[in-house]
Design a protein around this nucleic acid. Structure first.
Length: 281
DNA sequence: ACGGATGTTCGCGC
DNA sequence: CGCGCGAACATCCG
């Protein structure tokens, strides 16, 4: 579930729910989600703290509390922040609960527990290795053909692998990289260094479109895997749609494994040889 | 029952 | 050092 759009959504929700409100009590279950700290110490450190700001960097959330307490949150594969009422029944896979005045409880929920919560100081938040190694943010920073040309030069790996490299560009995962390349009409196995200027421009626009589209879906709560209740169908153009007709040309979509990950593509819209320039949009 | 799932990291071999 | 591959982490779903 969490790539840049979902993490951005989580940042907005955490601001709405928590900024300016004192955490009255913390319950932290003993799981690998808590990195390098015992549950009791974690709970004690966040108890009575008030959240002052939330910043997203790539797929990382950086929370700054009063008294120089910092918390970094990475959602891994199945992590999410949700708000419940104290009287609600237990939430499956809830790992940490932040109790607020008035009965609201903010849960960190993570089925597979690949995500993590790391406690630090505010000043160290931007110095965490997970943050200092990141490339520019795919949403906040201007990602254009010139940037991609600089970054892709001498990168001979598949363009999809490079797009998912967080040290190159922060925020894209398997879904967004797949969607961005479909929008750009670029085959995911093309070598990053061989793309020409026109193709790089298409990739840059594809990234922005894919991210904005998913963010828009989340805002209208159409994203199935984010909503807690009813499951809504796959909201993506090609991800998870192998065998279905291409939404642009109706050719059956295919799937490959690139860098160990499934990659959906349209063999007609995304040819392996350099695509012919096309007119208009 | 087996294989795969939105992420990241580590070890190994070339 | 660059690059590719497989495994590991933990759990659920089809």
């Amino acid at each position: 579930m969490p790539e840049l759009p979902e993490v951005e959504h989580a940042a907005r929700m955490l601001r709405r729910w928590l900024v300016g409100r004192r955490i009255t009590r913390v319950e932290a279950d003993p799981t690998r989600v808590l990195r390098g700290i015992e549950p009791e110490d974690f709970a004690r450190a966040l108890g009575n703290r008030t959240l002052e700001s939330v910043v997203r960097r790539g797929k990382n959330l950086l929370l700054a509390f009063d008294r120089d307490v910092g918390l970094s949150s990475h959602l891994g594969m199945t992590g999410r922040w949700v708000r419940r009422r104290a009287e609600d029944p237990a939430r499956a896979h809830s790992r940490v609960r932040l109790h607020l005045p008035g009965g609201d409880v903010v849960h960190y929920v993570d089925q597979r527990m690949f995500g993590g919560l790391e406690l630090t100081t505010r000043s160290d938040l931007p110095r965490l290795p997970a943050v200092t190694t990141l490339g520019p943010d795919a949403l906040e920073d201007e990602i254009d053909a010139a940037f991609l040309a600089r970054t892709f030069a001498r990168r001979n790996s598949a363009v999809k692998v490079v797009l998912m490299d967080q040290t190159v560009l922060a925020g894209l995962g398997n879904i967004q990289a797949t969607e961005a390349l479909f929008r750009a009409r670029i085959h995911p196995s093309r070598r990053a260094s061989e793309l020409d200027r026109r193709e790089l421009g298409a990739v840059a626009r594809g990234i922005q479109k894919a991210l904005e589209h998913t963010l828009g879906m989340i805002d209208t709560e159409e994203l199935a895997y984010l909503s807690d209740g009813a499951v809504i169908e796959n909201p993506f153009l090609v991800y998870g749609r192998a065998g279905e007709p291409c939404p642009r040309c109706a050719t059956p979509l295919e799937t490959l494994r690139i860098g160990g990950r499934a990659s959906a593509l349209c063999p007609r819209c995304q040819p392996l040889t350099r695509s012919a320039p096309r007119r208009g949009r």
